[in-house]
Amino acid sequence: MSFKATTAACVAAALALGMGTTVAASDYPSSTINWVIPFGAGGGSDRLSRVFAAEAERHFGGASLNVENHPGAGAVTGWMHVLNQPADGYTVFNATPTPIITLLSEEDAPVDPGEIDILGYLAAFASVLVVREDEFPDWDSFISALNERAVTIGGTNALLLGAANAIDQAGAEAIYVPYGSTGESVTDFLGGHIDVAAVTESTALTIVPENGIALMNTSSIPLPDSVNEALGNPPMITDLGYSGLAFPRWVGMHPDTPEEIKARFAEMFEAAATDPEIEAVFEAAGEPIIFLDREAAAADYEAMVNTMRNAIGLLQ
């Protein structure tokens, strides 16, 4: 940090201390924004957050974005941390469905998944069902097979939720085999130990077309065209009139944050996420930005929580 920025930060901190939390929205942001992620350093979320923080600073009025790791308790520790910080817009929560799944799995969860204000999606990965073409050439044959025999679907817990949600709506049942990591589930799919692999689109790209086809995209949000094409344009579950389940990298704030600050942040966040330069960096990292603005993201989030609540029951 340069001396100037340091001084500015010190002055800002002193002012903030002096004035309590009544920070005017007009000069937001005037100091460092803490970008909280509920995962440890080194994981996928950490990597993308750091890339974003480094690239996006210029869209946040010169305020620096400081990535803070608060892992633990099924990614709920970070959420609790955010709720314990002042609701002044200087603490942002950037998470995935992991903490939501934890909260919905608990009988007495410490917070409700609604205790956050969603301000946008930075990405939304899909649970894509990958199968061997000779076994299940299309969705209809897949569903009829499900009704005749027990079909095994493997994947990580989150991705199985997407699969279970889709299959449940089609009125069918399957055997969901949970895996700790995508590596293990894909190995078992390639080895023929399970019938279907529920994977993200980026993993699906490594399997399709040599070792399988993308049978169905169970997400609520379409994939980028280039990805869709490479996967052989799989149908979307929403085309069938069912609800889909996307796995967003969402960004939110303490619910008590003043509205002007939330609006201001959402604006700056949108500017950063739709900046072609930043988009190109994410594209190169193999995780293209799939941006949803505040309104669309909040609506999808609410639907996602409800859908998950039901789907989690199927997997317990």
Partner: peptide
């Protein structure tokens, strides 16, 4: 099932 077990009621 991804349900917490053996945690002595401690979320951490």
């Amino acid at each position: 099932s991804n349900v917490a077990r053996n945690t002595f009621g401690q979320s951490w």
